[in-house]
Design a protein around this nucleic acid. Structure first.
Length: 198
DNA sequence: ACCATGATCCGCT
DNA sequence: GCGGATCATGGTT
């Protein structure tokens, strides 16, 4: 399968966020393949006080200002990584956070990755494997090294998956933020068991 | 001081 | 089984 073209990521961020639902994110690890269907995302836009890019470019968020189609990985709460898909043109500073995926392939390695991080000794279920932004990163082995990767030419790519009818797409306020809570910029697939919250 | 989180504990149904 | 409080832990500004 071919990675989605650059043009997919150069469109308005809210549009890209909705269209990412149902797409497959693929991670190459040596000879093995990890595959997840994107089921929950959040958009972070220009002028958005909840966005890491709101106060301008810094060392931490610089990847967010690259051209759409790059991977922005950040470290938070002293122990977790989260991954975003950069959108728009260079300098825009917009991105879409991957909040949850449904594991489709490489589940054994995902489980191993979660256990290696010493944070998967509770509720060791298929749901708990990837139903959150930091859980997804652990399962897929995404950390500092993957910050700035180009999704069109690297060990991580996004390919076409299952088209999601707008009928079963839902939106809500974003999770875990203090500012701009009125923006309904979290999108998810209604009823999918891996969605982190209703 | 503040975090775009996750695991655990505790008090309930 | 749940929902809410609490804590673990370190980088960023």
């Amino acid at each position: 399968m071919k990675p989605l073209p650059r043009s997919f990521y150069l469109r308005p961020t809210l549009q890209v966020a909705r269209d990412l639902l149902g797409k497959h994110i693929v991670r190459n690890v040596g000879t093995k393949l990890l595959i997840g269907k994107i089921v929950e995302v959040e958009a972070y836009c220009k002028g958005d006080p909840a966005s890491h890019a709101f106060r301008g470019r810094t060392m931490r968020n610089s990847v967010m200002f690259l051209e759409g189609g790059h991977l922005y990985v950040y470290f938070t709460y002293g122990m977790h990584f989260c991954a975003n898909i950069v959108t728009g043109k260079e300098g825009d500073g917009e991105a879409v956070l991957i909040r949850a995926v449904e594991p489709l392939g490489g589940i054994e390695l995902m489980t191993k990755n979660r256990i290696l991080n010493h944070q998967f000794h509770n509720q060791q279920s298929l749901i708990n494997l990837t139903n959150g932004p930091a859980k997804f990163c652990q399962a897929f082995g995404i950390a500092r090294r993957q910050n700035g990767l180009d999704l069109l030419d690297s060990e991580i790519s996004i390919i076409n998956g299952t088209p999601i009818p707008s009928k079963i797409m839902k939106c809500s306020s974003r999770i875990g933020i203090q500012h701009a809570v009125e923006k309904k910029w979290r999108f998810y697939i209604k009823g999918n068991p891996w969605v982190s919250r209703k």
